[in-house]
Nucleic acid binder design. Structure first.
Lengths: 333, 333
DNA sequence: ATGAAAGCGCTAACAA
DNA sequence: TTGTTAGCGCTTTCAT
C-alpha cells in the first residue's frame, strides 16, 4: 500500500505538504503541487479512508433509510441519493427497514455511528427514531418535523393537476382511492383534491376511502369505483392504479373508454401497466439529490459545481403530468 | 463519545482487557468479562469503526456494482446483498454504472479502495474491469471467469421448466424472444430451450431473434410472435414479456386465450402486468446473499449462524415456476 | 489472565 | 510556503 510517506519521500517533501497538496491545493506552491500530483499518479497513491476519517472524525458517508428497496419508488430515491452523493465524493450506506418500523431505531443507531448524517425516507415512528440520532444531522424525505430539514414532493399540486387533466377531458365525476389514513402525503393529496373540486363548477370528487398503498389496495377499491358512477378514478399511487386496472379488466370494463384511471408518482409500474398509466411524474430522484444537497449544506460541505443552493429548511419538489393510455374523454351518455 | 479508555477506567481494567473482552471473550476471565460488558452497556460504548479498521486494515464494507438500481431485478439483488451484509456486520457501498459500461472501470477503482471486496453484477467488459481490481476479492454475479468466484441463476433449467409448463398445457409451437446476443444468460436460456425441444416429440421451438431486454424489445417482437403461428411465447425476461402484452392487447389478441406469454425472473413487473405474468421465479435476493456469503468465506470471515457454507467457487441458484394469468391451454383449432 | 506500548495512515495545529 | 509533531481509537504483540 502506498502511503503519504512514500509519496512525500519520492517527491522530496514532507507528508503534510503532500496532504495539503491534495486537500487544499491553493495552500501549496504551484511547482510543489505539480511535483506531488505527478508522484501521486506515478505511485498510484490513494488515500486511506479509515485513517483520514479517524483523524477528522468524519466518515465520508451518508446513511439512507428506506422501508423497501424493492419498491420502485424507493429504488429511484436511492438512485438519486446515490448519484448526488457520489458526485460529492461521499458514499451511501443504505439500510432497508423491510417495512418493519420496529427495525428502524436499531438500524438508525447503527447507521448513525457509521455516517455523517442520515436521510430518512418515510420513517414510521419519528419519535422513536429521534432518540437514537444523538445530534447526527438528519434530513426527512416526505415528512416534516419542526427541528429537522426536509424535502418533499408537492402532492397537493399533483392532485390539482390530475383533476385539471381529467376535467379538460370532460370528466365531471371523479373518484379518489386514498392511501393510508395517517399518511401525511395522503392528506396533501386530499387537500389538493379539495382545492381542485372547489375551483371548478359542476365537478364532483368522490372519496372512496383509505386503502393499502399497493396493488391489493387498488383491487379492493375497483368495484367501489365502478359503483360510484364516476367516469374517472385517481389512485393514491401507481401500484394502486395497477390494482384498479387489474380488476377492471377482469370485469370487462374498457380503460380508458369506460373508465379513466390515473396513477401517481410515475414509477416503473405506470409504464409497465396495460394500458400504460397516465400519472403524475414526481421527481423522486430529484428528491434524493435534494436531500443530499441539504445535508451537504447543513454539514458545511461545499455543494459543488455552482448548483443553486438549497438553503431552505424545507424544499418542495415540483410535479408534472404524464399522459399515457389510461385516460380519455368519458363516453357520451 | 465513549472510548475504550472510558470503559477501561470505569471497569478498573486496562484498555487491552476491554478490547479482548469484546472481541475474544474466551481470553478473559469470566468475572472480568462480565464487569466489562456491564460497563459497556451502562456507558453505551460502541466501537469506533474507523479506528478499528485503520488498525486492522479492513474497511468493513463490500462494494456492489449494478447497471441500474431502478431496474427491479437489480433492486432485488441489492436488497439481498444488503440484508446479508448487514447481518454480517458489514456495510454495502452501491455503485450504479447507469447502464454505461464505460463508467465501470472508474467506479470500480473507486470502490476497490473503499471496500474489502466487490460484487459485480453483470459487468459488461470484464477485461477492462479486471485491470483496476488489483487483488481485491471479487464475486461475479451471472457471469463467469476462470479466476473469479461467481454466483448465477440457473437459466437453463428455467427454460426447461417453462417449456414443460407450456407443453403440459398442450402447446406445441412455442416462440422465444431472445435477449442480447452476447449475453451469457441468453445463451443459457437457449441451451435450456434446445434441451427441452429435443426432449419432447412434436414440439417446435421458434427463435424470434435477439431483442433489447426491455419493454421495447417485447414490443418489437410481438408481431413476429403473432406471425409465427406459435400459440405461446417465452420472453427473455419480464420486461420483454410486458412489451409483448402491450402490443398484443393493441392488436386485439386475447392473452392467454389466443396466445400464452411467459416472462422470466418474477420481478415486480410480472405482478404488475395485466394479465399478471406466468414467469420463472429466480431467487435474485438469494443470489445477492450467496454472493456476500462467498465473499465472506473468500476473505476468511466467519459466515455466521451455521448457514450451509458456500465453499464452491461457483454457485448456481435454483428456479421455480410461478403460474399466473398469462398462460392457458391453446384454443382448439 | 492482564497490562504496557507500539503504531495503523492521516490531519491539523503550531513553528519555522 | 513548508515542515514538525501530536494524537484520533483501536488491535496486537510482548511482557508480566
Amino acid at each position: 500500500m502506498v502511503t503519504l510517506h512514500d509519496v512525500a519521500r519520492a517527491a522530496g517533501v514532507s507528508i503534510s505538504t503532500v496532504s495539503r497538496a491534495l486537500s487544499a491545493p491553493d495552500k501549496v506552491a504551484e511547482a510543489t503541487r505539480r511535483r506531488v500530483t505527478a508522484v501521486v499518479q506515478e505511485l498510484g497513491y490513494t488515500p486511506n479512508r479509515a485513517a483520514s476519517l479517524l483523524r477528522s472524525g468524519r466518515t465520508g458517508s451518508v446513511g439512507l433509510v428506506v422501508p423497501d428497496l424493492e419498491n420502485p419508488y424507493f429504488a429511484s430515491l436511492a438512485k438519486g441519493v446515490q448519484s448526488r452523493a457520489q458526485e460529492a465524493g461521499m458514499s451511501v450506506l443504505i439500510a432497508d427497514s423491510d417495512e418493519n418500523p420496529r427495525h428502524e431505531p436499531e438500524l438508525l443507531s447503527q447507521l448513525v455511528q457509521q455516517t455523517d448524517g442520515v436521510l430518512l425516507a418515510a420513517p414510521r415512528d419519528l419519535a422513536a427514531d429521534f432518540g437514537v440520532m444523538d445530534g447526527t444531522p438528519a434530513i426527512l424525505i416526505n415528512a416534516e418535523h419542526p427541528d429537522l430539514a426536509s424535502v418533499s414532493v408537492d402532492y397537493e399540486e399533483a392532485m390539482v393537476r390530475a383533476v385539471a387533466h381529467l376535467r379538460a377531458l370532460g370528466h365531471t365525476r371523479i373518484a379518489y382511492v386514498g392511501g393510508p389514513t395517517r399518511s401525511r402525503s395522503d392528506g396533501q393529496r386530499r387537500a389538493g383534491l379539495k382545492l381542485a373540486g372547489d375551483q371548478y363548477d359542476g365537478l364532483e370528487i368522490l372519496d372512496l376511502g383509505a386503502f393499502s398503498p399497493k396493488v391489493e389496495g387498488g383491487e379492493a377499491a375497483a368495484d367501489l369505483a365502478l359503483g360510484s358512477g364516476a367516469t374517472a378514478t385517481i389512485a393514491y399511487n401507481d401500484l394502486v392504479a395497477v390494482g384498479l386496472l387489474r380488476i377492471l379488466a377482469r370485469r370487462g370494463v374498457d380503460v380508458p373508454a369506460q373508465m379513466s384511471v390515473m396513477g401517481c408518482d410515475d414509477t416503473l409500474a405506470s409504464q409497465l401497466a396495460t394500458p400504460a398509466l397516465t400519472t403524475m411524474y414526481v421527481d423522486i430522484r430529484g428528491a434524493g439529490e435534494a436531500a443530499v444537497n441539504m445535508f451537504l449544506e447543513l454539514s458545511g460541505r461545499t455543494p459543488g459545481k455552482g448548483r443553486v443552493s438549497d438553503l431552505a429548511e424545507h424544499r418542495t419538489l415540483p410535479v408534472q403530468l404524464v399522459v399515457r393510455d389510461s385516460t380519455a374523454a368519458p363516453r357520451r351518455a
